[in-house]
C-alpha cells in the first residue's frame, strides 16, 4: 500500500465525492449552522474530530467482531450506539481536560449524534472499502483517510457557504426566495461547479 492511495482517498472524498454537494449528507447543519464563519469553523472541527474517531472504531468493530461472528446485519444498530456513546465520551473528556476546546466545540457536540454525515461515512466505509480479504490495517488506513477527506470537504463547503451567506444577507433577494430557497440555489450552483471535477481521479 503506497501513500498515493491514501492521498487519492483523501482528495476524492474531499473534492470529488463531496459530502454535502454530491452525497447530500449533513444538509441540516449546512442550512442551519452556517450563518457565521466562526460557528461554521467550530461545527466542522467537531464533525472532523468525531468522524475520524467514529469511522476508525466502526471499521474495527465491523472487521474484528461483526464479520467473524457472522452478524453483519446488526451493523446499523451497533454503529449508531457506538457513535452516540463516542460523542458522549468525547464530551466528558473535553469537559474534564480541555476547557478551551470545549468552549469552542461544546455546543456542536450534541448536534452531532443525529448528524447523518457521521453514520453515513461509517456505513459508506463498509460498503465501499471493506472486503473480506483486505488486511485490517490497510482497510483501517483507507477508512480513516476517507473520514479525514470527508471532514475536510464538509468544513470547506460549510465555510465557503457561510461567507456567501454573509453576502446574501445584505443583497436584495426577492421575498419569495429569501432564506432557504436561495441557499438551496447557491448550493445547486456550487454543486454544478463541483460536478466538473468528476472523473479527475
Amino acid at each position: 500500500m503506497s501513500w498515493t492511495l491514501f492521498a487519492t482517498a483523501i482528495i476524492s472524498a474531499m473534492l470529488i465525492n463531496n459530502v454535502i454537494l454530491m452525497q447530500f449528507l449533513g444538509i441540516c447543519p449546512f442550512l442551519g449552522v452556517s450563518k457565521r464563519s466562526s460557528s461554521a469553523i467550530g461545527m466542522s472541527g467537531a464533525v472532523l474530530f468525531v468522524m475520524v474517531i467514529a469511522s476508525a472504531v466502526t471499521y474495527t468493530i465491523y472487521d474484528l467482531v461483526l464479520h467473524p461472528f457472522d452478524i453483519p446485519y446488526i451493523s446499523t444498530i451497533a454503529f449508531i450506539l457506538v457513535i452516540a456513546s463516542l460523542v458522549q465520551l468525547v464530551e466528558i473528556i473535553l469537559k474534564r481536560y480541555s476547557k478551551s476546546l470545549y468552549k469552542s466545540l461544546g455546543i456542536y457536540l450534541p448536534l452531532i449524534t443525529t448528524n447523518c454525515a457521521i453514520l453515513g461515512v461509517s456505513e459508506g466505509n463498509i460498503t465501499n472499502i471493506w472486503t473480506a480479504n483486505m488486511p485490517y490495517w490497510n482497510g483501517l488506513g483507507l477508512a480513516v483517510a476517507t473520514a479525514v477527506g470527508t471532514g475536510l470537504g464538509f468544513g470547506l463547503i460549510i465555510f465557503a457557504f457561510s461567507s456567501i451567506r454573509e453576502r446574501l444577507d445584505s443583497s436584495n433577494v426577492p421575498k419569495a426566495w429569501k432564506g432557504v430557497p436561495i441557499s438551496l440555489v447557491v448550493a445547486g450552483i456550487m454543486s454544478l461547479a463541483f460536478f466538473g471535477l468528476v472523473g479527475v481521479i
Partner: peptide, 17 residues
C-alpha cells in the same frame, strides 16, 4: 450480548456525561 453491552456502554456514557 453485543447489542446489550453496547446499550449498557451508551447508557453509562450518557449518565456520566
Amino acid at each position: 450480548i453485543m447489542i446489550a453491552s453496547l446499550v449498557v456502554v451508551y447508557m453509562l456514557a450518557y449518565l456520566l456525561n
